[in-house]
Amino acid sequence: MAQNNSGSVSIVGNKKHAYDVLTKACVYFCSTLTVAILLAMLIYIVIRGLPQINWTFLSSQPSSLKGIYGILPSIINTLYIIVITLLIATPIGVGAAIYLNEYTGNSQKFRPVVRFIEFTVETLSGIPSIIYGLFGAIFFGERLHLGYSILTGSLTLTIMVLPVVIRTTQEALKTVPQSFREGALGCGATKWYMIRTIILPSAQSGIITSVILAIGRIVGESAALIFTAGATTNLPKNWLTHPTTSGATLTVQMYFGVSNGKYVDEGFGIALVLMVIVLGINLLTKKLSSMKKSDR
């Protein structure tokens, strides 16, 4: 762009050139550093993790008696927690977004209410997971007598992913053209009918994105689950009552395995599995958002 030719006659002189080169070098160095850190982490995880991955690792439950280490129970627990959490969090989150965008949207009367709710949503997303863990343990675990169980963990995570769902859905609702609403209402549709048949289908991909983001958050969570869902790694005996028993997710199993120093290599195996999931989630959200763009 506006590069100074230091050789030619210039009113600004060489000093500026040095400034440019220096800052540019700094910018490039820092961005390279960011990417290099990530690549180094990825490569190291793949190198240490790949030898651990085999069928027994993926399909058995850990047993010190037989000397096997497997992650099947924690995969199942993770799935349980994802499903239960989303079953509760998605309707509430989408409902809250609809309330914020459709029911209070433009009216002056509700402005303070909306601002306050948005403030609390932001606050929720800023609360660290360890606090959620403490709250979940005393409220769901002790007060509601759910103890260490997958259910306690899911309820705790429900509150944690709520802001993700609300915000992403709200963004999606904002992109639904105002003319859709006016058209529907003009045809005599009632509010709920309009939301059900026009707004929600139009915001579909945004809602799906919010669900995927929530899954990412749940898969990576550990601090909120240690005191709520516990650390047991057993295969479910009864699929229906399994949520009332304690169960470790992948991250929790990995944490306990690594922190007592026994299963560091296996930890890298789990890390690799987690990285694959995270990568998949990132690609999926990217795909969805590009689809959304081509829609319009």
Binding site: P91, I92, G95, I98, Y103, T120, T123, F135, I138, L162
Partner: peptide, 28 residues
């Protein structure tokens, strides 16, 4: 009546975040 019920439901959902923040604060 459906409209009324739905608007109540959405209001409750909308207040969920408020309840959560105050619940957590109170319990802490």
């Amino acid at each position: 009546s459906i409209e009324k019920v739905m608007s109540v439901i959405f209001t409750v959902c909308g207040l969920s975040a408020v309840v959560a923040v105050f619940g957590i604060a109170a319990y802490m």
